[in-house]
Nucleic acid binder design. Sequence first.
DNA 1: TTGTGAATGCAACAATGTTGCAATAAGTTT
DNA 2: AAACTTATTGCAACATTGTTGCATTCACAA
Lengths: 129, 129
Amino acid sequence: MGSRKKTKPLMILLQTFEGSNGALSSVELVNQLREKMNKTTVYRILQRLEEGGDIHSFMGKDGLKWYAKCKGNKKGQKMDAHPHFQCSYCGKVQCMDLEISVPTIPGYQIDEAELLLIGRCKNCLEELA
Amino acid sequence: MGSRKKTKPLMILLQTFEGSNGALSSVELVNQLREKMNKTTVYRILQRLEEGGDIHSFMGKDGLKWYAKCKGNKKGQKMDAHPHFQCSYCGKVQCMDLEISVPTIPGYQIDEAELLLIGRCKNCLEELA
DNA sequence: TTGTGAATGCAACAATGTTGCAATAAGTTT
DNA sequence: AAACTTATTGCAACATTGTTGCATTCACAA
């Protein structure tokens, strides 16, 4: 008894997303998992998870890559387009549960759309009040 | 005659934007101006131009910072929100002359919105046809 | 057990961007 | 014009984010 299998990095990473409501930046992930796995592994697993459609990524205004768990949308389907909100005060990023309207442009083929909203988040606004 | 003032880096940079219809990435700018000025100067001038409202910046899907000249909108006014299109084939980025609709989110203050559209641009589509 | 391919760690590298400081240029005051 | 002051630039060194090559380990199948 007791000889349980070592939890795999991929699982650890997925759990990290479960335990967080917002999006996680690469930096946050690398730091938070520093003792459990190598940063190369973090990046590689993120890539695998993204390719597999389990998480999606986008660039923050801060120049960091942010990752979040995919909710409703099935694997491979790119156009689930919800906006992301980045607070310019606390820096945190969240997925917003809204549909965005993606414009059509004659002559162009649009495969993906990222709407990044920048401002002040609920928490930071309340702290101010 | 002939002793004209040396053109200042800031002017050179602004002219670079004039001569280009699309957006320019930091990398492109640093490379293109390598012989005329130091990369530190490029970055510093970009910052000044952005603060002054002459250009605006946004993150591309490629993780690079892209810059483009501000057209209609007056200095300081952030919410002119037009989308940017990045071609995943040639990598080029353009400002799209469209208004985008920025959602409202109760409890949040939205100061800025960036819509990045990713797909295949006119040129790349035509080459395929 | 052995063999095979995938997954991981490690170190070194690459690219983008920033900082400190010295040198220069531009503008002001006397 | 000379002296002073401030802003601009260049350079080198650094910081951060991310990638690559290669050796090692792990998981699984024969």
